[in-house]
């Protein structure tokens, strides 16, 4: 009777205790996000950079803020060993990358193969208005 070992069964997500949030984390997340938002805004409004540099800068600021909020607001990366939350998140990012990148790629490609509007009108006229 004395040798009853407590064995938790069926642990898909083991946390042992609910994650505790701290004020410090929220303040860091909020302050950082505000700074990045305003920096991005000021650059887009008044920055005299050429377009590719500007796009890269704004995309970087957005991704940095995304990461900051994932860590400090959504508490990603603070779970215990089977890191399922992180796994699902990385999977989501892959899907999003394929979905958005692929759509832009394919549609640009199609657009490049399409007749321009003016060429189309000319062609239609040459074909007796179709």
């Amino acid at each position: 009777m004395s040798q009853i070992n407590h064995q938790p069964v069926d642990i898909l997500v083991s946390t042992h205790q609910p994650e505790q949030v701290t004020l410090r984390g929220y303040v860091i997340g909020f302050g950082g996000s505000i700074v990045m938002t305003i920096t991005a805004y000021l650059f887009a409004r008044y920055g005299m950079l050429n377009k590719p540099v500007m796009v890269a800068l704004l995309a970087f600021l957005a991704l940095a803020q995304f990461t900051l909020q994932l860590v400090y607001f959504l508490h990603l990366g603070r779970e215990f060993s089977p890191r399922l939350k992180l796994l699902v998140t990385v999977f989501m990012m892959i899907i999003v990358f394929i979905l958005v990148g692929g759509s832009i790629w394919i549609m640009n490609n199609l657009d490049g193969r399409m007749m321009g509007t003016k060429v189309m009108i000319k062609y239609m006229n040459s074909q007796d208005g179709l």
């Binding site: 887009a44 377009k51 500007m54 796009v55 957005a62």
Partner: peptide
């Protein structure tokens, strides 16, 4: 609620900021 703010980061950047610099 935090997730909605995360989505808004991208709406702000892609729709409004990229729109303003005519990407």
């Amino acid at each position: 609620w935090h997730f909605l703010d995360v989505v808004w980061i991208f709406i702000f950047t892609i729709v409004y900021l990229f729109g303003a610099i005519r990407v």
